[in-house]
């Protein structure tokens, strides 16, 4: 028997006390293996006004490309006990967010190859009836050229998924919700 799914509804503006807590935007500590990085950015609407009430969640593999999840078949050998891969942040009054994490390793794809290092992103907000999903990629990665998701994207839009390095270990990922140069969103 098929069960119809429960429909999506907007997260609305008042999720903060229930969903956001200090420290949820910090994924890595001094015990975590890998290169410590910061990812910061701003969420902007179709008028390029800041979105001060968005919720961003990230989900990523550890430094060797392993997800902390039983369906990743490499759990025994590749897990990092000091990294679980999930982060959450609400945007501030300027629409800004920041995560402290580590750079993920490459993850296996479906075609026998490797996906370029990436971070999976969910975005929720008042005015979005459903989640938006996208991915964060890193510049100067050899695997970007063969990544199955990046390869799907036309060249001018591909750049919206690749973070800009603003300092050593600091990357910028702005999310433009609407417009000609809006961020690429993915249907998963």
């Amino acid at each position: 028997m098929k069960f119809g799914p429960t429909p999506w509804q907007t997260v609305g503006p008042f999720f903060g006390p229930a969903l956001v807590a200090p420290g949820l935007d910090v994924l890595a500590d001094s015990h975590t293996r890998g290169q410590r990085i910061f990812i910061e950015g701003q969420v902007l609407d179709g008028d390029r006004s800041p979105v001060p009430d968005a919720l961003i969640e990230i989900w990523q593999a550890n430094a060797v490309g392993c997800y902390d999840h039983p369906e990743d078949p490499r759990q025994d050998k590749a897990l990092d006990p000091a990294f679980h891969g999930f982060g959450r942040a609400g945007t501030d009054k300027s629409g800004c967010f920041r995560f402290a994490t580590i750079k993920p390793g490459p993850v296996p794809g479906v075609d026998g190859g490797l996906q370029a290092p990436h971070i999976n992103v969910s975005l929720f907000a008042r005015g979005l009836l459903r989640r938006l999903t996208t991915r964060i990629y890193f510049p100067y990665e050899e695997l970007n050229a063969s990544d199955p998701v990046l390869k799907l994207l036309p060249e001018p839009r591909r750049a919206s998924l690749i973070v800009k390095q603003v300092a050593k270990g600091r990357f910028r990922f702005d999310i433009l919700l609407q417009g000609d140069d809006e961020t690429v969103f993915l249907e998963i």
């Binding site: 179709g46 979105v51 999930f86 296996p108 008042r126 991915r135 799907l152 919700l177 998963i188």
Partner: peptide, 30 residues
Amino acid sequence: YVSTRKRAPVHPPIRIAHTLSEITGPRLVR
């Protein structure tokens, strides 16, 4: 729903195949 007018993307999302990235997910998030 008026707030969607400046926030909903205009480009259709790009469909991707499921990989470990989509099939795995956070368990204990708090």
